Amino acid sequence: MENLPTELAVLTGLMVLAASLWIPYIVGVNTAPPGSLPADAPDGFVRIGNPALHRPWVQRAYRAHLNLLEQGIPFAILVLIVDRLDGFGPLTYWTAIVFFWLRVAHAVGYITGAARLPLRPIIFSAGWVCCLLMAYAVFAARAA
């Protein structure tokens, strides 16, 4: 069996992060201090599904998860296409590594509130550039 390419190993880590980023939100929802929710807040799923009812960090955890899915899914598909085209190289290697760490920094910074304007949008935009670079790698591999 050949070694797992770095891009696929990074993608695996990214998908584990995406699959786990719901945890801070659920922890926040279930540890709301008594009286912190409006008295008329519904019980059960409706309350869990409405991040606006919760503390700011819980709302940010919800958005961090959505943001990762917004960029992570397209990035993952692009990596898999490049793999299918046998197009991995130095560009895809570094793009995958940078994207992973940008997404970790974005999630941590968003949830903690440490990544404020303009840092958080810069990190998100840098992730978008990584998606563009991986898309370029698809077309470069196709042309080769």
Rank of each mutant, 00 (worst) to 15 (best):
A19L: 10
S20H: 02
L21R: 02
L21I: 07
W22M: 09
P24E: 00
Y25L: 03
Y25Q: 04
Y25K: 12
Y25V: 03
I26T: 13
I26R: 11
G28A: 02
V29C: 05
A32E: 04
A32S: 02
A32V: 00
P34I: 03
P34M: 03
P34L: 06
P34H: 01
G35H: 04
G35W: 00
S36N: 09
L37V: 01
P38R: 13
P38A: 14
A39H: 05
A41W: 09
P42Y: 09
P42K: 06
G44C: 10
G44A: 05
F45E: 06
F45V: 05
F45I: 09
F45H: 08
V46W: 02
V46S: 12
R47W: 06
I48W: 06
G49K: 12
N50E: 10
P51D: 01
L53E: 06
L53G: 08
H54P: 04
H54R: 07
R55F: 04
W57P: 09
W57V: 00
V58I: 04
Q59Y: 09
R60P: 10
A61N: 08
A61C: 06
Y62G: 06
Y62W: 11
Y62K: 02
R63D: 07
A64D: 01
H65S: 04
N67Y: 00
L69R: 06
L69I: 00
L69K: 04
E70P: 15
Q71F: 02
G72Y: 08
G72C: 08
I73V: 15
I73S: 04
I73L: 15
P74V: 02
F75S: 02
F75G: 01
A76Y: 03
I77V: 13
I77T: 01
L78M: 15
L80M: 14
L80Q: 08
L80F: 11
I81R: 00
V82S: 14
V82N: 08
D83M: 05
D83F: 12
D83E: 12
R84K: 13
R84P: 04
R84H: 05
R84G: 14
R84E: 04
L85I: 10
L85F: 14
L85E: 04
D86A: 15
G87A: 15
F88V: 13
G89N: 10
G89Y: 02
L91S: 09
L91V: 11
L91W: 11
T92K: 09
T92P: 15
Y93V: 08
Y93M: 15
W94S: 13
T95M: 00
T95P: 09
A96M: 14
I97R: 14
V98K: 02
F99P: 01
F100M: 12
L102G: 10
R103A: 08
R103K: 13
V104E: 01
V104F: 07
V104C: 07
H106C: 05
H106P: 05
H106E: 03
H106L: 12
Y110L: 08
I111F: 06
I111E: 11
T112Y: 07
T112V: 10
G113K: 10
G113A: 14
A114T: 08
A115D: 08
A115V: 05
R116Q: 15
R116E: 14
R116M: 14
L117V: 11
L117E: 07
L117M: 12
L117C: 13
P121E: 05
P121Q: 03
I122H: 11
I122N: 07
I123C: 12
F124I: 03
F124H: 13
